[in-house]
Write a protein that binds this DNA or RNA. Sequence first.
DNA 1: TTCCTAAATAACAAAATTATGAACGACGTG
DNA 2: CACGTCGTTCATAATTTTGTTATTTAGGAA
Lengths: 90, 90
Amino acid sequence: MNDVFEALAHPVRREILKLLRKRSMSAGELAEHFTIAKPTLSGHFAVLKKADLVTTERQGTTIIYQLNMSVMEEALAAFMQLAGMKGKER
Amino acid sequence: MNDVFEALAHPVRREILKLLRKRSMSAGELAEHFTIAKPTLSGHFAVLKKADLVTTERQGTTIIYQLNMSVMEEALAAFMQLAGMKGKER
DNA sequence: TTCCTAAATAACAAAATTATGAACGACGTG
DNA sequence: CACGTCGTTCATAATTTTGTTATTTAGGAA
């Protein structure tokens, strides 16, 4: 869960998640939404993948990124617990 | 909101929030729960304060930290929005 | 195979984060 | 005032993160 909170710390990565919320996209498509260099974005992808917030699927030469909703939900639950809104007391 | 997500990225800061969820505490009381040096913890306090996740109140020589629930709720709402669970579409 | 494209990896620089001990400021007491 | 306590700020070091360009890998087409 630590990886997830770290992944959420960067605005570009949150934007990536927001984009993937609408639909799955290739790395190239995602890159069109940012002005940063491809390898930089690739690094952000790696952080999101390490946190298991996204999964990948290769289609020929392109790689499709998709949001991992179950982990997003787990993260939300963890946050609610931290905030004391819901879930376990401690 | 960026400051909030950054503040949540470090496990010590999340633990501080969890402790403050039970009750407000002085910096010294909080320090008893960690093995790290005081100045380090003071730095974490500053990050939480910058994110407005905590507020402070001086009582003599001690400084009481208290959780800012309204910002926690705002952060939770932002997260739900990011996850597409609730709230605005974009 | 050769060429082209998509994306990741390598190598590196710059900046931010995390951490510490020492010094400092604010407060209450004698 | 002098002293002790509480907590922060200062100065600094080590590590991590973020970013770049150059190179490499992987796959499809000619």
